[in-house]
């Protein structure tokens, strides 16, 4: 992500320190992670200390300080999904992409994450890719879904 885009986002929020989280969220959603250069620019332009940005960026799970892949795969491990076979879904997806939860593959295609409940237990087991929910998953169906992502 280039710093010009960071500046644009900061200007959109009138360089207000109170918009810090909004600025961070916008960079996170466009870039999938928060690079250090971007954070330094924000600190300078919004006039907030780096310690504060660091505190916020590490406090909320929505932010990532390490590079993330182009597509984020979330697998629900909540109670309902768990009893309906989420561990098997997770195993299959791990084998397919070749990474463990919390990791990103080498060509930056997928990031895998387990989550605790996506709020649609009736659809369990649930897999979410880039905000799209895939309900009633079966280990055999995961490959069909993941191959649609480039």
């Amino acid at each position: 992500m280039d710093l010009e885009r960071v500046d644009q986002i900061i200007e959109k929020h009138n360089s207000e320190a109170s918009s810090l989280i909004q600025v961070l969220l916008e960079i996170q959603s466009e870039n999938h992670w928060l690079p250090k250069e971007a954070l330094e620019r924000i600190a300078q332009r919004l006039d907030v200390p780096m310690t504060r940005i660091q505190h916020i960026a590490t406090f909320y799970k929505a932010f990532s300080l390490v590079p993330k892949g182009r597509h984020e795969v979330h697998i629900c491990m909540g109670t309902a999904c768990h009893v309906r076979g989420a561990p098997r879904i997770l195993d299959t997806v791990q084998d397919l992409i070749g990474i463990k939860p919390g990791e990103t593959d080498l060509d930056m295609k997928f990031s895998l994450q387990t989550v605790n409940c996506l709020g649609c237990c009736a659809l369990g087991p649930v897999m979410e890719v880039d905000g799209v929910y895939h309900g009633k998953m079966a280990p055999a169906k995961t490959a069909d879904i993941l191959k649609n992502y480039e």
């Binding site: 200390p49 780096m50 310690t51 504060r52 660091q54 590490t58 406090f59």
Partner: peptide, 21 residues
């Protein structure tokens, strides 16, 4: 100066320095 701050949350919370500062 804001050189040292809190990082992370809950049981994993710790203090951290900004190295450059």
């Amino acid at each position: 100066l804001n050189v040292v701050g809190f990082v992370d949350r809950g049981t994993r919370r710790e203090i951290g320095f900004i190295p450059e500062l």
